[in-house]
Design a protein around this nucleic acid. Structure first.
Lengths: 247, 247
DNA sequence: CCGCTGTATGCTGTAGACAACGGGCAAGAA
DNA sequence: TTCTTGCCCGTTGTCTACAGCATACAGCGG
């Protein structure tokens, strides 16, 4: 099952085949959505996407299924796919669930983590602080997610990891804008959390994580109000959009 | 796929188009998996399923995607779909997550539930007790799930409801066999829970729910040991199975 | 007898095409 | 003008066909 890359430039006129096309479609569309080039609520026409990405409709359909499962698009049977339009209410509830899952993760991590795991956490956190000092926001955000993910991995509960991962992906809809705002404090809280885990202090770890995610939630809610205006980008059916743009 | 049955529905299904075929495929396969006619670990060949259900491979593929997302089958890219083989460890972790989510649901339900919601809960619970008295296990299981779902709905957190629903579906892999075992006690606990919700006693509600699901988990773990033998039904590639059955 | 290699076959992933459904739009009636 | 009615066409859901890869197996050499 190994994928030995780079042998065929001939077939590479499409895309390298070892990885199914739907994967590329999935990633491409995810980026398009994150970058807002596909607006929330927008109707996604399969044939348009297929042509745009140079593949047939099947990979697009399958990618849409995945995107649907991860909350990036909403699939209305017989009607089509629409870019998910996140609401404040949903964000609030999502972050509440995140708080619940991650707090429990921290508790379990404190019970189960070994020295190696703690070391890895410290390393990630150190890198995060460095990234912040260098104003490298993207890296900092990624490392932040990595820290949280690592804690969840150390919980030893794979199902919990699954669900937390799902939540994390959906949180990323909202997260980036607030990363800069409360950067430094966040990493200090991480450090305290890691200490608690190292000391096998489950209750403290859980409490710190709960407070940590709760602050993130608050930050988001304060931040978000101003954005709501352009949430109103209307979701026109593709047809109507096209007619409109002709005029 | 030794026993090809229920292909009669296909003809009728093809006529009423409003519901996509993949929905029917999804439901049919889910039932086949629950009933163990598709064994855990078994390799699912798309073309076989398609022929068996009287549709083409596309609806089957899409149904498999859904089944994968809900944990019924595992999809290995380029290799095929396999009926998910649940393990004890996974069940344990799954039930731990369930405990977490449902406990929080109960807490929130106690904070937010209105009189109407409480009434609905009581009604469901009453029906459940009746079903148990009539030895109607299937109905009792369904009503049990309904009570839990209703509590989660009353929490007012739609995201939480989403995740709890996912967990519930996966728990059903394991649940039915233990339903009979601890039937009566379960409904008594439900009653206590509903009281707590009605009294707006969030902490008590959360505690009762946590203990309730924890007992379910324990029951499962005790029960399950004996089943593990036939978990070892080997997952042969479809080809080999066919050859073997010729001999 | 065992291991290797070439070949055959079956499976998945993808492409391209068709038919039905449903919304949009225009023409006609009130 | 405004509402109704019928047609048009865009979109989805589905089907069939094909290419490529991986495995199983046979035949050969050690």
């Amino acid at each position: 099952m190994q994928s030995n890359e780079l042998p065929k430039e001939l077939a590479a006129r499409r895309i390298d085949r070892p990885v199914p096309l739907r994967e590329h479609v999935y990633q491409a569309m995810q980026e398009l959505i994150i970058s807002r080039r596909l607006a929330p609520g927008q109707h996604l026409v399969e044939s348009e996407l297929a042509q745009m990405l140079g593949v047939s409709r099947q990979p697009v359909r399958e990618a849409l299924q995945w995107l649907n499962n991860e909350g990036w698009v909403d699939l209305r049977p017989g009607y089509g796919a629409f870019v998910h339009a996140p609401t404040q209410e949903e964000a609030d509830q999502l972050l509440a669930v995140r708080r619940l899952l991650e707090s429990e993760s921290a508790r379990l991590a404190a019970l189960h983590a070994d020295a190696e795991g703690v070391a890895k956490l410290r390393d990630l956190n150190r890198q995060g602080v460095e990234a912040l000092e260098n104003d490298d926001v993207d890296t900092a955000v990624a490392l932040n997610a990595a820290v949280h993910r690592c804690v969840t991995e150390l919980s030893g509960n794979k199902v919990l990891l699954d669900f937390a991962t799902q939540v994390d992906r959906r949180v990323r809809w909202y997260y980036t804008p607030i990363a800069r705002q409360r950067g430094e404090q966040s990493w200090q809280e991480h450090a305290a959390l890691i200490d608690a885990i190292e000391n096998r202090d489950a209750d403290t770890a859980a409490r710190i994580m709960a407070e940590h995610t709760e602050r993130t939630r608050k930050s988001y809610l304060e931040q978000q109000v101003e954005d709501d205006a352009d949430q109103q980008l209307i979701a026109l059916p593709a047809r109507r959009r096209r007619k409109a743009s002709k005029a």
